[in-house]
Design a binder for these strands. Structure first.
Length: 375
RNA sequence: GGGGGGAUGCCCGAGUGGCCAAAGGGAGCAGACUGUAAAUCUGUCGGCGCUGCCUACGGAGGUUCAAAUCCUCCUCCCCCCA
């Protein structure tokens, strides 16, 4: 099989199934486990690049579906490529648009060759295929790109999930080929292409999916198709079982988890990377992550609170404002409130994950987990 | 001085005899959010001893089986003419 870019990844420590590692990309090193903030349209909503860095982000996401429609991948390329576009010189990962097949299902039609969408921007008919997704991702120029997959909802029947697995496998081969034909190069340098394991919470289908993708020899693998409405228990079992099927020396990416407990749960099961809109979205809705759990700042009980959100947190919100003031900013829909809480939640999560990494290095992850979550 | 319009629940505002504790919006209160169609969505939103009762549509009277809705007077507000 044609050689394609493979950024060096090594696991430096393990603690049970949990791993600490280092991924070296051309634009910088990612210490894993690592949470990746999501910047769908080329911006992590409400968080300027320097604040993102201050919040501990090492690598950020962007979305191929959205950027290919607005402003268009050629425009992004012509404006200097995705890194300049986002004002972020660190590593970037683009999602393939596969998730939009799931989240925009009402307006999408899937067939073996690809997906026909109705653009959410102007209603125009759009066609996405594995080749098209790779081509768009090449033009965008992220460092890590994803195979175009099919992500069925938790309510899908086993047959539908099986069909999605087979389609995802076939599409992965086509993505792999399209990527290789371009020499693994995007408009702005080498790109590492990751495969995505599907299969819902069905052990046999997960296995089928993983084994098929292993044959395609990707430099890293994502666990997709989870966090789509299934129960936590089966989700975690599936994560553990899937991670166990993947090569130890390749990076593992759980797609779409961002609540503090969930993050520790997947780290415990051998995941290195994960992303989620939850911290930034809930922040925009007025909810802050704290060591004591989620805090809804809109609640009237905080009106007169003079305490910081989290006295230990170094973020702007916690250093500068009381809960009472933050509540005011949130309830009055002041932009600053959304920005501050977004920065805070990202800071909280990266500190949590950094702590987990340190604990894995010292072989004390179980104790660390207990300290944060209890039990 | 003359003519006209209006006063509705915390706010704005619909309703012009029964289906009205009264549309809709806002505010308030609470909940959800997990590879972002999301600064979004959902619920609640007079009181109580809550399958019913009480209070309520500027105030006071009246007509009617029944009034936020019709009549009379009063109070206040707005507009036009002089």
């Amino acid at each position: 099989m044609t050689a394609i870019p493979r950024f060096p990844f090594r696991v430096t420590h393990t603690d049970g199934a949990a791993r600490a590692g280092i991924l070296e990309t051309p634009r910088g090193t990612v210490a894993t486990p690592c949470f990746m903030p999501v910047g769908t349209k080329g911006t992590v909503k409400g968080v300027a690049p320097e604040r993102l860095a201050a919040a501990g982000a090492q690598i950020v996401l962007a979305n191929t579906y959205h950027l290919s429609l607005r402003p268009g991948s050629s425009t992004v390329r012509d404006l200097g490529g995705l890194h300049r576009f986002m004002g972020w010189q660190g590593p970037i990962l683009t999602d393939s648009g596969g998730f939009q097949v799931f989240s925009l299902m009402d307006t999408a039609r899937v067939d073996d060759d690809g997906v026909t969408f109705r653009s959410v921007y102007d209603g125009s008919l759009q066609r996405f295929s594995p080749e098209r997704s790779i081509e768009e991702q090449q033009r965008l120029g992220a460092d890590i790109i994803m195979c175009f997959d099919e992500c069925p909802p938790a309510t899908a029947s086993v047959d539908a999930v099986a069909a999605a697995v087979r389609r995802t496998t076939a599409w992965a081969a086509r993505c792999r080929k399209a990527h290789a034909e371009a020499g693994g190069l995007g408009s702005d340098g080498p790109q590492m292409l990751l495969g995505i394991v599907q299969g819902g919470v069905d052990a046999a289908l997960r296995r089928e999916s993983a084994l098929a993708l292993l044959e395609l020899d990707f430099p890293g693998y994502a666990i997709g198709g989870l966090s789509v409405g299934e129960e936590r228990g089966p989700m975690l079992e599936t994560t553990a079982a899937t991670a166990a099927l993947l090569p130890e020396e390749r990076v593992r990416y759980f797609m779409g988890i961002g609540d503090p407990q969930g993050v520790l749960d997947v780290i415990e099961r051998g995941v290195d990377l994960f992303d989620c809109v939850l911290p930034t979205r809930t922040a925009r809705m007025g909810t802050a992550f704290t060591p004591q759990g989620r805090l809804n700042l809109r609640n009237s009980q905080h009106t007169l609170s003079d305490e910081p959100l989290d006295p230990e947190c170094p973020c702007t919100a916690c250093r500068t404002f009381s809960r009472g003031v933050l509540r005011h900013l949130v309830t009055q829909k002041e932009m600053l409130g959304l920005q501050l809480l977004s920065e805070h939640n990202l800071t909280f999560l990266s500190r949590l994950v950094a702590g987990a990494r340190g604990a894995i290095q010292m072989n004390s992850f179980a104790a660390f987990r207990k300290q944060w979550i209890g039990a």
